[in-house]
Amino acid sequence: MAAAAMEEAARAFIVVMIAHCETGVAAFVFPSSTRQWQAAASKGWSDLFPCQGESAMMSSMHPKFVGRHYAYGCFYLESTMNKKLLAFDTRRMEFSIVDVPCETSNMFGLAIVEAGEDMIGMFDIHSDLRYYIRGNKGESSSQWKIKKTISLPSDYQYYIQASTERYLLLRKIGPLQSISSSPKMLEVEYVSMDVKTLQLERVCGISFGFSLASARIYTSFPPSLLSAPTI
């Protein structure tokens, strides 16, 4: 019985859907145990953004949230209207707003990762790659601190493509002088970074490959429950 319970727990999963509208945001979950959708949490813009002016703006302009990230049981969505993250904690089934460091740039996107010791990590690109950390609890837990600045070659353009709990995927385009002189010679490479070691490693590369701009990271796929049976 114990082995069966452990196997059942290993196969358990939950699907989360986050919907937003003019009045607020809501989360719905689909647990494997019940296989039925159910409302999990909801929050009005006026509660998430106490400032009257900002909440009024949010409700009238219908905010957009993009760039979904996941770390330590929480989903993070980037706001297209201000430097804030909409967070949904799947353990507490609660919404909250997380500020983003004021010096970050939304031009190239950002990435949320697990920094270890229950701390959230954030990557952002300017001319260099900046790595911030933020604690989940304790004193100054809400303050982002820059952990490291990683220099990137100036003759290439880098974009944050995707991230998992531990890895970051960058898209590298260049050399930049080829864009004007010979666009067909432009190369696109994908580079991964281990959050623990902060080491860059080439994944693959193509020539003039803008069709791969939507590349994503897949890990532990296919899941064990879809794997072929073994003896």
Rank of each mutant, 00 (worst) to 15 (best):
M1H: 05
A4R: 11
A4W: 12
E7V: 09
I14L: 04
I18H: 12
A19H: 01
C21F: 07
E22C: 09
E22N: 10
G24P: 00
A26R: 10
V29D: 01
V29R: 03
F30C: 00
F30Y: 14
T34N: 08
R35D: 03
R35F: 04
Q38A: 07
A39S: 10
A41L: 07
S42K: 08
W45V: 14
W45C: 10
S46C: 10
F49D: 05
F49M: 12
A56N: 09
M58E: 11
M61L: 07
H62C: 14
P63E: 13
G67I: 12
Y72T: 10
G73W: 14
S79Q: 07
S79L: 04
N82Q: 12
A87D: 01
R91M: 08
R92G: 03
M93K: 09
E94A: 10
I97Q: 04
P101E: 06
P101S: 03
P101C: 03
E103Q: 12
T104Q: 09
G109Y: 08
G109T: 14
L110G: 11
L110E: 12
A111E: 09
E114H: 12
G116C: 02
E117L: 15
E117R: 14
M119I: 00
M119P: 00
G121V: 00
F123T: 12
F123E: 12
I125H: 11
I125Q: 11
S127F: 03
S127M: 08
S127Y: 03
S127T: 12
S127R: 09
R130H: 11
Y131D: 04
I133F: 01
K137H: 11
G138H: 01
S142Q: 07
S142H: 09
S142I: 01
Q143F: 00
Q143W: 00
I146V: 11
K148H: 10
T149I: 11
I150V: 12
I150N: 01
L152M: 02
S154V: 05
Q157G: 12
Q157Y: 15
Q157F: 14
Y159E: 04
Y159G: 00
E165F: 02
E165I: 03
R166G: 01
R171P: 05
S178Y: 04
S178E: 09
S180A: 07
P183R: 04
P183H: 06
M185D: 13
Y190D: 06
Y190W: 08
Y190V: 01
Y190C: 04
M193T: 05
M193C: 13
D194H: 04
K196G: 14
T197I: 05
Q199I: 10
Q199R: 13
C204E: 06
G205C: 08
G209D: 06
S211L: 04
S211M: 03
A213K: 15
A215H: 06
I217H: 03
Y218S: 13
T219S: 14
F221R: 04
S227C: 15
S227E: 15
S227T: 14
P229D: 10
T230S: 14
